[in-house]
Design a binder for these strands. Structure first.
Lengths: 131, 131
DNA sequence: TCATCTGTACATGGCCAATATATACAGTCA
DNA sequence: TGACTGTATATATTGGCCATGTACAGATGA
């Protein structure tokens, strides 16, 4: 488990940590019960404050990815894929609802929305190819 | 054309002005060619700075609702319903993009999104029946 | 022409949420 | 007991957004 931070990035440090550890868990590099580096060790390694690593761990714990145990450490939780999916699904729903709210006044119907969605998907794929 | 501001509202002053004038135009209370109060007159009336009224007018102009003419005043533009639609479409796109961004990590594909969309549409219709 | 109206450009100050921090406290375990 | 663990506290810094005053330039009618 190796975390790399970019200071030039506009993404907050604690967010970068969350993303990388979260990805490692989702990707299977970290499995249930695995111990994460302690907040202090990670802070020392990355040359940042303990509070920042703590924040990352706290939020990961709140999202169910890890469990923190005072005096012992932080450990990967059994990956509840259903829970993870639920959280993402809410974000998706929120976005779709926003689109839907704006669609009415714009005179756009269900089929128009689907069409736009397909267009956006294609644009996204095209973009990833460009890079 | 009467603008009323609420200081207790968390909505910015310039935004409140935009909303009310925009609504008046869309609602037909203001028609093509009608003169709006000058930025100074409106500022005096509302006891706020010229800069704030200017900001409201500038953004309304950028969105095609009005035209500002140095030395003359601000005037309602012919309501280009196509343009209005364009703007709504952008909001729709933004919502869809948000949903799309969240969909990837959630393991949701194109078909899943369409399905969710249909569900939301049904929920919406059901809601309107209830009311 | 000149007084007075019009919109516009500029730099600045206040506010607030988000980010990152140091340090002291409390639990675990060899 | 010593050396590790996570946690709670108050605080500093930053950056974006809102609102502002003032000086400038164009238009218009007496």
């Amino acid at each position: 488990m190796r975390v790399v931070l970019s200071n030039s990035s506009k993404v907050p440090l604690y967010e970068q940590i969350k993303e990388q550890i979260g990805a490692a868990i989702l990707g299977g590099d970290l499995g249930e019960g695995d111990a994460l580096p302690s907040v202090r060790a990670l802070a020392r390694d990355l040359r940042i404050s303990v509070i920042t690593t703590t924040r990352a761990y706290t939020e990961l714990a709140a999202e169910g990815f890890i469990a923190t145990v005072p005096g012992k450490g932080a450990f990967v939780q059994p990956l509840d894929r259903e829970l993870v999916r639920e959280q993402r699904v809410r974000q998706v729903e929120a976005g779709l609802q926003t689109a839907l709210d704006a669609a009415g006044p714009a005179g756009l119907g269900r089929d128009d929305l689907v069409e736009m969605l397909d267009t956006l998907i294609q644009a996204e794929q095209h973009e990833s190819v460009e890079q």
